Simulated assay, not measured.
Amino acid sequence: MEQAQVDICERYGAAFSPPDGAMKVGISDSALRGEVPLHGLRHEPQSGTSGWFIWSGEWSDAADLFKPLHLHHLADDCPAALPFLALPPGWRFMTAPGHEDVWPDHTLLEQ
């Protein structure tokens, strides 16, 4: 998987910044069910979190949209997110069958 992550970072001109596998992500139930499109954004890591928030479908402002999950569970629970997780803070991705979009969003670093 590391090579796939390196390839994504190189393709989009992003620094390779894999999170520590003991850290957590915030993930929605829809992403865990494999719904598409799959979205992710990364803030700065803090307090044992990787900075990643991953969801599927439309954005929601619901307070309970995200639940914590250790990164090592993603291989089984949301493998489609794995190739993107070495993108550094301040980046986003969106993927669906036959589609991939990755872009910087520096507003994520301001929060």
Rank of each mutant, 00 (worst) to 15 (best):
A31H: 03
L74R: 05
V102G: 04
E44V: 14
A15W: 14
P37S: 02
R11I: 01
L109W: 00
G90K: 04
P18S: 04
L109S: 03
V6F: 13
A15F: 13
R11K: 10
M94H: 10
E110K: 14
P68A: 05
A15K: 12
G90V: 01
S56Q: 10
H43A: 15
F93H: 04
P19Q: 10
L32K: 15
G51D: 11
T95S: 10
Q46E: 13
E2H: 14
A22C: 13
E100L: 12
D61A: 15
H72Q: 14
I27D: 04
C78V: 02
G26A: 12
K24W: 05
Y12P: 02
G40L: 15
H99S: 13
P88E: 01
D7G: 02
C78K: 01
A75F: 04
S50L: 03
C9G: 00
E100V: 07
K67M: 06
G48A: 06
S56M: 11
F66H: 05
P68V: 02
P18G: 05
C9E: 01
W91C: 02
C78L: 00
F84N: 01
H72K: 14
L38N: 07
S28R: 04
D64V: 07
G48Y: 08
Q46A: 13
H72G: 13
F16N: 07
G21Q: 15
A15V: 11
H43D: 12
W59S: 08
L41F: 09
G34L: 04
V36D: 11
K24N: 09
V36G: 07
A96T: 09
G57R: 09
W55T: 00
S56V: 09
H43S: 14
S47A: 13
S30G: 04
E58P: 08
P18F: 11
G48E: 03
D77W: 15
F84R: 10
P89Q: 00
P18R: 07
P89E: 01
P18D: 03
P104K: 04
A81H: 06
T107C: 10
W103A: 06
A14G: 02
H106N: 09
R92E: 04
W59V: 08
L109A: 03
M23C: 08
F93P: 01
H72S: 14
V6Y: 14
L71M: 04
V6N: 08
H43L: 13
A96D: 08
G90D: 03
D77L: 15
V6C: 08
H70K: 12
H73S: 10
G90E: 01
M23F: 11
S47L: 14
E35F: 15
L65G: 01
Q3C: 10
K67L: 05
